[in-house]
């Protein structure tokens, strides 16, 4: 691993190919399968991720493979996050192209929605903090469309029980978030 990082710092072509083979392919699959990106979006995202890694790798040192894994993944997640933000902002742009009175209405609607999303997020975070960590992970990973089998390996729980845990946890979370929203109206 340190060898790969060393070579990446020299912008070695074989190292770049190795980086793609070891991480790019997996992240492409992850983007398509779990985050429902289409082919072009996913390739664009992988390109941005790998490009960024190659660009900034000079500034970092990694103790081991685990650290490098985490670094690659974090770059990817940041790009994914930006992608969703951009997508959302593009949606607002189309509203701005509408007629003036519609625009005003839309802006009001958007503002309300933004406020609502923020409130939802505040409540969600607040409630999730009360959950055991593995239940929290279960909810977050299930939202990414990981299967029970996959999650079971990660949280080290029996697959059969996991489904029940998930249904219960989701119900509790929904109820408590709604309760939180009502209390803050």
């Amino acid at each position: 691993m340190t060898e790969l990082v060393k070579k990446l710092k020299t912008k070695d072509k074989q190292a770049i190919t190795a980086l793609y083979n070891s991480y790019g392919k997996k992240l492409y699959g992850f983007a398509v399968c779990k985050w429902n990106l289409d082919e072009d979006e996913a390739w664009d995202l992988i390109y941005k991720t790998l490009y960024k890694i190659i660009e900034v790798i000079d500034r970092y040192t990694f103790e081991n493979e685990k650290k490098f894994n985490g670094f690659v993944y974090q770059v990817f997640i940041n790009n994914l996050r930006n992608y969703y933000k951009e997508k959302k902002s593009k949606g607002i742009e189309t509203v701005e192209l509408e007629e003036r009175h519609e625009k005003i209405l839309s802006e009001i609607k958007e503002e309300k929605e933004e406020e609502s999303v923020t409130m939802h997020m505040i409540c969600l975070k607040k409630i999730l903090e009360q959950f055991e960590n593995w239940k929290r992970v279960l909810l977050l990973m299930k939202a990414q469309q990981f299967s029970y089998e996959e999650i079971a390996r990660y949280v080290n729980k029996p697959v059969k029980q996991l489904k029940v845990y998930y249904m219960r946890a989701k119900q509790v979370l929904t109820d408590k978030v709604n309760e939180c929203l009502n209390n803050n109206e």
Partner: peptide
Amino acid sequence: LNELLRALYLDERAAVVNEEEARFVMEQDY
């Protein structure tokens, strides 16, 4: 709820590295 959880996941993982999770994601077959 799912949409919010995904957004939350991205916010949290963008801020703090979770090496175990990274390893897990890289080990899966897609």
